[in-house]
Design a protein around this nucleic acid. Structure first.
Lengths: 106, 106
DNA sequence: TATATTTACAACCGAATGGTTTCTTAAATA
DNA sequence: TATTTAAGAAACCATTCGGTTGTAAATATA
């Protein structure tokens, strides 16, 4: 069981589930209605998402509401942020080139 | 062949490769030295990364230099950004709560 | 030119993945 | 209480994945 967030978001169905429950908590049945698979398959996806703490459950009678754990999504953001710094830097470098060109013109 | 960027970054070795070549272009042999696998396994990872355009090749004699295509990384950033907006929003909501509390105090 | 080096490609293998069907448990309802 | 409904768990299956070994092609070097 590898069960890390990057593996969790690798599956397109799971990303779609994340997109759905980000807006409002939903039951497995309600989620499954949005996909062309069985409820059980969705249940499996939810288990994976739960295991890596990307979603949280909230029992209400016999229904279980799943919702997104936004905090956990930050971990992905933190990973990508280091590269965001890089493309910002390369943009600044271009900016410097343009500044230099302007300076030469003057 | 699923070959999308989310599936590409799901593997920890591939994320490590991305981290390596983000700093400087490297040959498969040089990359493989950093891992406890065969050069062929690294070669396979590079193929996957190349197929989804996360890395680019630059042939130099019989050596091939691989480097990161920063632009493509933006696609992941764009996906996560919608959720970044959400946790910013929930932070602002907390901010409002705090403001209200302050107001009540006053 | 013969040999060594760098790399890609193909075939194969065990484990993991995503899916299905079937079954069980627990809560709501007739 | 009997039945329906919501959901998880288990068993199974085909495919994919990450890895290995072996082979082929192309460039560099003796």
């Amino acid at each position: 069981m590898r069960r890390d967030i990057f593996q969790a978001i690798a599956d397109p169905t799971r990303r779609a589930i994340i997109g759905l429950i980000a807006l409002q908590a939903m039951t497995p049945n309600a989620i499954a209605e949005n996909f062309n698979t069985t409820r059980q398959a969705v249940s499996k996806h939810l288990r994976i998402l739960t295991e890596c703490e990307l979603v949280i459950q909230q029992q209400q009678g016999r229904e279980i509401y799943y919702s997104l754990q936004l905090e956990k999504m930050k971990e992905i953001d933190e990973w990508i942020s280091q590269y965001r710094e890089m493309w910002k830097a390369s943009f600044n470098q271009l900016d410097n080139v343009l500044s230099t060109m302007k300076g030469q013109k003057k």
